[in-house]
Amino acid sequence: MINFQYLRADTQKKAIDALAKDASAQFIAGGTNLVDLMKKGVTSPQRIVDITHLPLKQIEKVPGYTRIGSLALNSEVAEHELIKNNHPLLSLALQAGASPQLRNMATVGGNIMQRTRCTYFYDTEMPCNKRIPGSGCGALQGYNRMHAIFGASDKCIAVHPSDMCVALVALDAKVLVSGPKGNRRIEFEDFHRLPGNDAAKDNVLQQGELITGIEIPDHPFTKNIHYLKIRDRASYAFALISVAATLDIQNNVIQDVRLAMGGVAHKPWRLPAAEEFLKGKKVSEEIFREAAKIAMNGSKAYEHNAFKLKMAPAAIIESLKIAAKLD
């Protein structure tokens, strides 16, 4: 690992100032992704700003919202009574990610900020527009089994690796951000971006901006929920496909529904057309099949990931059936 200067921020302002003035500096919290990337030479910041001493670890209920500090650990959030009772989908998604050791290190903010696990991004001998803009995309003509089927461009077909973010986009969470120009609140859906012509940018954060927390608005989705994750082994692997499904069912009629997928796009992928279709319909396997068909509109496979075009709708149907307790 190339050496760097270590700075411990004792206030939020100092942390933000340190990054705003220095484009080669990066925040560190859990380090589970950044330290790995630095070891591999994918990134080599000249300065690391340790934010773990900032008071951003709280998990609390405020009127209308649940607020989670960006430094709350993935394991703490997953096991917290407030989250298990009010946002069980988030608990399930967190438990599906990484390993117990990594969840004890990784923070909510770091999970949102994690980079893709595309092997061409990690391999510094390979071209990658995300790592070196303009160098090309190794995955496009390469071994692209893990790659995107939605929203990709010829510049980048990588996927966002998070499970937590799939649940958060489904639950209409907001990302709380503090920066040199003040505070802002970003809709989770708008936080991560599609690669387009600028694959290097994963999200809409500006230089020096710090994620201070997330807010999840109150919702009725506590009973009929499921997070389905399909991967190459039973645990501790990134998703081939994952589906977050939550339903609000009254008298066998779907009042409201949220659907999102992981492992399919450059960002956590919400399925608004399928949601719209399901609203007001009676629960049945047939309408879940129809919704899955609608959800797949616009999908596109590459040489090695065509299996995802079959796996994704099957996963949506299965996830909805389990959430609706159909079997």
Binding site: T32, V35, Q101
Partner: peptide
């Protein structure tokens, strides 16, 4: 690289991967 768990230690009673933990922190 945090993929095998051979480096697992406890920090303040919590298990973590020592290989992805900066000692300075």
């Amino acid at each position: 690289h945090g993929q095998c768990g051979a480096c697992t230690v406890h920090i303040n009673g919590k298990r973590v991967n020592a290989c992805l933990t900066l000692a300075v922190m």
